[in-house]
Amino acid sequence: MKHMVFGVLSGGIVILFVVMLLTMQHKNVRKEELEQSLTEAMETTLQMVKTDADKDYTSEEMRALLIRNLVPQINSDSELTVRMLAADVEKGLLSVEVEEYFSYPGGKKGSIQCCRTILAEEDSEETEKGEKEVAMQTVIFYRSREEMEQGESYYKKLEIQKGDYCISPAEPVCDDLKKKFLEWRDSKDYLADFTQCVEENQTYYAVFE
């Protein structure tokens, strides 16, 4: 009997240890993915701005480019909070803070944070955290109107600074592979207009044909 109890306890400890290792590994993989994706998105954004020298980019337009370059690289089951800490076109400066919320395989919620500052002229990079609080708006994308009405699962969820632009995410894939993505529509069935600044929470659903 004593040996049986000892065996059960030992087995429980081993299982707990394995779960802890898997949780740490999952978080590390997520963090590495976010750091790499954010760095690549920022470098791509600054390169696009430098290449298009004839256009005078505003900080809002740089944010829009960054979001467009970052969103397709992040897993669709995560939630992102994107904060622009600094954006100076003349200096080629871009400073960003991104927080990603996700679920571990067992269902437990987790989050990771990544801060990056890139200065194109000096080709340098450093980590920095901002202190300024800004108003944020939630923008949610669903794969269908049915999913939007149920509100149980979504395709993308973004936290965008009020007054910034929201860029259409990568096109989702329909369960019916014969159908192709057509467009995004808002909760009132109007065609999505991503040329307008985000002033309030928005909800969109995908339309396939």
Results as ranks from 00 to 15, higher is better:
140 I>P: 09
112 I>K: 09
96 V>Q: 00
162 K>M: 06
147 E>A: 15
82 V>P: 01
101 Y>E: 03
141 F>L: 06
82 V>I: 11
98 V>H: 01
101 Y>I: 05
156 K>C: 09
84 M>Q: 13
86 A>Y: 08
171 E>R: 13
163 G>I: 07
112 I>F: 05
142 Y>H: 12
136 M>C: 07
148 M>L: 15
83 R>T: 13
157 K>A: 01
81 T>P: 02
138 T>I: 15
141 F>Y: 15
162 K>T: 05
169 P>I: 08
143 R>I: 07
112 I>M: 07
160 I>N: 02
124 S>K: 13
150 Q>A: 09
130 G>E: 07
117 T>I: 07
78 S>I: 00
148 M>S: 06
96 V>P: 00
118 I>G: 09
100 E>T: 00
99 E>F: 01
102 F>K: 01
127 T>F: 14
130 G>Y: 14
109 K>S: 06
140 I>Q: 05
108 K>G: 03
159 E>N: 06
155 Y>E: 03
162 K>F: 04
93 L>A: 02
142 Y>W: 10
98 V>E: 00
173 V>G: 08
141 F>M: 13
89 V>N: 10
145 R>M: 08
96 V>D: 00
85 L>N: 05
101 Y>Q: 10
105 P>N: 06
161 Q>C: 04
106 G>N: 15
159 E>P: 01
169 P>K: 14
105 P>K: 11
152 E>Y: 04
156 K>W: 09
